[in-house]
Design a protein around this nucleic acid. Structure first.
Length: 445
RNA sequence: CGGGGCGUAGCGCAGUCUGGUAGCGCAUCUGUUUUGGGAACAGAGGGUCGUAGGUUCGAAUCCUAUCGCCCCGACCA
């Protein structure tokens, strides 16, 4: 993309409504624009990152054997009356009446709706196990939205639901989700620690929250420092293997790691003192096993193959897709702006033309642009009539992980400069070498 | 919902106390000179002062109502 043709309304000054760094940077980098409290438009740059995150979530869900679909944002109130949650959910649920005076609501989650779909079409144990998920906008009418997309009222969320014949099978689904979530967050350049959590209004017996450590996190967390050394990495895993999934779960949850809701001082005291950590975390996902809570209330039963009918065992699992943008920025920025991990960056690299209009410089930039595009990567080429300082400041602000700087001075020796946004290290090299390095970084060799 | 604050140009703000026909910086547009970390000069455009009533010869300014936004708290992915 040529910056001169793009829509990137960056702000030099910080809008006064933004308090925390991710919100400020998202506004300044022209990623979002507030529409009303806790509701945002996603401008092109923000939309691109949002889609990248969404894509990673989809890929990892599908890899784990989960099936994508899409349910509506508006739901009939009757479904929620059936489960008993219409009253339980309270003021957070946005209630709407249609022209026929039917009670509707803007879904804050989808347990009821998916259970309704399930019971309409699935009747036999032979159809199990089954895990369906979707990525859809949700609405929770927070009393006080804040922190930009980290706690908006409207938010994009992946929510998935597993249906299994018994508790053991459902717990395997639970474990499988935990593994897939570890992979998902790591691909985004995040370390998200699974912590024992509280089930809240979803209800249920077993639940873990995934937290990204950041000073601005809303939850206080307590953990054994050994846990931050764990990496899921590149390991191959058979998602159908109960043992393999279980082993990963054990590995990642055996050390002490809890939010303040479930924190237990006596247990925490058993962790060697030097490894005890108290910090703050941003919740970016949660998994639940809740058994037959919804299936019993709503009659989601299957033939068990022995002449009887049993309610299915269920769990649900969420990833806060839009919230992740804020979490990633909180975890990855400096005083100049955002630093995108390669996995989610809106553009793979920037090309900065220091002398727009200079024949040789323009040609070198155009050639770089073409080569990188041919690799299947997307560069952002700053071809504006702008001074060097302004171009650098924009690139630093929007946080592209790599920048190729092209100017007459270096070009006289046949060289361009490749700069890492994260370390600030620069290296002079030929344009060909720069293209190779970019290709290598993104696994395109 | 309790407490506090703020709505004036795209963004950041002054002006409000003490009423007199709206201003500064950045951004935008034009021109000239510049050009490796947010350039300089000259000029230009842009605001029914959140909205609606009221007081007054006259309201951004005073009064009333209302809408919106932000912060602290309770609540929450």
């Amino acid at each position: 993309m040529r910056l001169s043709r793009y829509f990137l309304p960056v702000l030099k000054e910080t809008p006064s409504e933004a308090q925390i760094v991710s919100h400020r940077l998202m506004l300044r980098a022209g990623m979002i624009k507030q529409s009303s409290a806790g509701i945002y438009s996603w401008l092109p740059l923000g939309y691109k990152v949002l889609k990248n995150i969404e894509t990673i979530v989809h890929e990892e869900q599908i890899r784990a054997g989960h099936i994508p679909m899409l349910m509506p944002t508006l739901q009939p109130a009757d479904l929620w009356r059936e489960s008993g949650r219409y009253d339980d959910y309270g003021e957070e649920m946005l209630r709407i009446t249609d022209r026929h005076k039917r009670d509707m609501l803007y879904g804050p989650t989808n347990e009821e709706m998916i259970t309704d779909i399930f019971r309409a079409h699935v009747g036999s144990y032979k159809d199990l196990p089954l895990t369906l998920y979707h990525i859809q906008w949700k609405f929770r009418d927070e009393i006080r939205p804040r922190f930009g997309v980290m706690r908006g009222r409207e938010f994009l969320m992946k929510d998935g639901y597993n249906f299994d014949i018994d508790k053991d099978a459902a717990l395997h689904a639970y474990n499988r989700h935990l593994v897939s979530y570890l992979r998902t967050y790591e691909r985004m350049g995040l370390q998200a620690i699974p912590m024992r959590a509280d089930s809240g209004p979803i209800g249920g017996d077993d639940t873990h929250e995934f937290l990204v450590l950041a000073d601005t996190g809303e939850s206080e967390v307590f953990y054994d420092s050994e846990i931050t050394d764990l990496k899921f990495g590149d390991r191959a895993i058979d998602y159908d293997s109960v043992e393999e999934c279980r082993a990963v779960l054990d590995e990642f949850t055996s050390r002490y790691a809890r939010t303040d809701e479930t924190h237990d001082e006596a247990e925490f005291a058993k962790v060697p003192e030097a490894r005890r950590r108290t910090a703050r975390g941003i919740e970016v996902g949660q998994i639940f096993y809740f058994g037959t809570k919804y299936s019993e209330a709503m009659g989601a039963v299957v033939d068990n193959g022995k002449g009887g009918k049993v309610p299915v065992h269920m769990g649900s699992h969420g990833i806060g897709v839009s919230r992740l943008l804020g979490a990633i920025i909180e975890a990855s920025h400096d005083d100049k702006g955002i630093i995108w991990p390669e996995g989610v960056t809106p553009f793979h690299c920037g090309i900065v033309n220091l002398r727009q209009g200079d024949t040789a410089t323009d040609a070198a930039c155009a050639a770089l642009y073409a080569r990188i595009t041919e690799l299947g990567l997307e560069p952002l080429y700053d071809d504006r009539e702008e001074r060097a300082g302004g171009k650098f400041a924009t690139m630093d602000l929007i946080g592209l992980p790599w920048r190729i700087t092209v100017g007459p001075r270096g070009l006289a020796n046949g060289l361009v400069e490749l700069t890492s946004r994260r370390t600030g290290d620069s290296e002079e090299m030929t344009p060909e070498a720069a293209v190779s390095r970019i290709a290598e970084i993104y696994g395109k060799l």
